[in-house]
């Protein structure tokens, strides 16, 4: 309890982070309950195309007469879902790699780190494009592709933390009483190594949302689902005649990614107080 209270106290001191959290909260609420309160299918041709916002429909219609508000609400689900799942998967894989490499060192470390470096040498967006293009775009392949290009940075970070901890006295104490390796890794070092990882993972969500948007802008999204990047891609053909079609989902991406970044900053303040000094 006390730990949480301290965390909140420190987090709260960063005003921007609080604002970010509030904004993200609203976006998440909209994603979860929006389609329920506003039950319009984002692919349904509900009216004339190119109607301006605040006329017949709150945010107007797109090039095929589809409700943009419905697209924003349904798109929020996909964008957030892919962002969260991809980051979660990347964190789990990255921490596992990093923990094993950092804890055991030696040949295992070499093997795992060379693998990681292999991924780090390829520009991540290009790799994501290639992966999605090969395996046909769908929610699963997009999520997996983003996770695949995101985990190496987490692995490097986790490895550093584990190397820093593995020879500390408390770890040696654990070894002395015969505690198995997995227990040391999971129950002893992990809680101490996790805070910086959480900060990086939170920022990764923002990057994942951007990557997903970039992919769907290029037409590499699940063709059966709406996402914000897809909406921008559709509006692209009408950029000269109806700029707001692209601007609205674009603004949503900016707001959400900014909010997540602010939260990441706040988490950093709250979890790594020493770094500030």
């Amino acid at each position: 309890m006390r730990g949480l209270a301290t965390f909140w106290f420190r987090f709260r001191r960063n005003r921007a982070a609080v604002v970010g959290a509030a904004v993200l909260f609203v976006v998440v609420l909209a994603a979860i309950f929006g389609p329920w309160f506003y039950p319009v299918d984002p692919f349904d041709m509900v009216g004339r195309p190119y109607t301006v916002p605040l006329d017949q429909f709150p945010l107007g219609t797109d090039v095929a007469g589809r409700d943009i508000l419905a697209g924003i609400l349904h798109g929020a689900r996909i964008s957030l879902l892919i962002g969260l799942l991809a980051s979660l998967a990347a964190t789990i894989v990255g921490v596992t790699f990093g923990a094993i490499a950092g804890y055991y060192g030696g040949r295992i470390d070499d093997l795992l780190m060379r693998t990681t470096e292999f991924f780090l040498t390829i520009p991540s967006f290009v790799l994501a494009v290639v992966l999605v293009a090969i395996f046909q775009p769908s929610v699963t392949t997009v999520t997996v592709a983003i996770a695949v290009v995101s985990w190496p940075s987490v692995a490097r970070l986790a490895r550093g933390e584990f190397i820093a901890h593995r020879d500390r006295e408390y770890v040696q104490g654990c070894r002395a009483i015969g505690m198995p390796d997995w227990e040391i890794i999971l129950l002893q070092i992990m809680p101490n190594a996790l805070p910086p990882v959480i900060v990086v993972a939170s920022l990764m969500v923002a990057t994942a949302i951007l990557t997903e948007s970039g992919l769907s802008f290029l037409g590499l999204s699940d063709p059966n689902l709406v996402s914000w990047g897809y909406m921008i891609g559709v509006a692209r053909t009408a950029l000269r005649t109806a700029w707001w079609m692209a601007a609205i989902p674009g603004l949503m991406i900016v707001i959400t990614v900014l909010a997540i970044n602010l939260i990441g900053e706040g988490l950093n303040d709250a979890l790594n107080p020493k770094l500030r000094k």
């Binding site: 299918d41 037409g219 559709v234």
Partner: peptide, 25 residues
């Protein structure tokens, strides 16, 4: 792009009569 938009429209219309359509590009 128009061909994609058309495919999306047809998918919606067929969904309306109970035919689930997956688009593949």
């Amino acid at each position: 792009e128009e061909w994609v938009r058309q495919a999306e429209y047809i998918r919606q219309q067929l969904r309306g009569i109970g035919i689930e359509v997956t688009n593949q590009s």
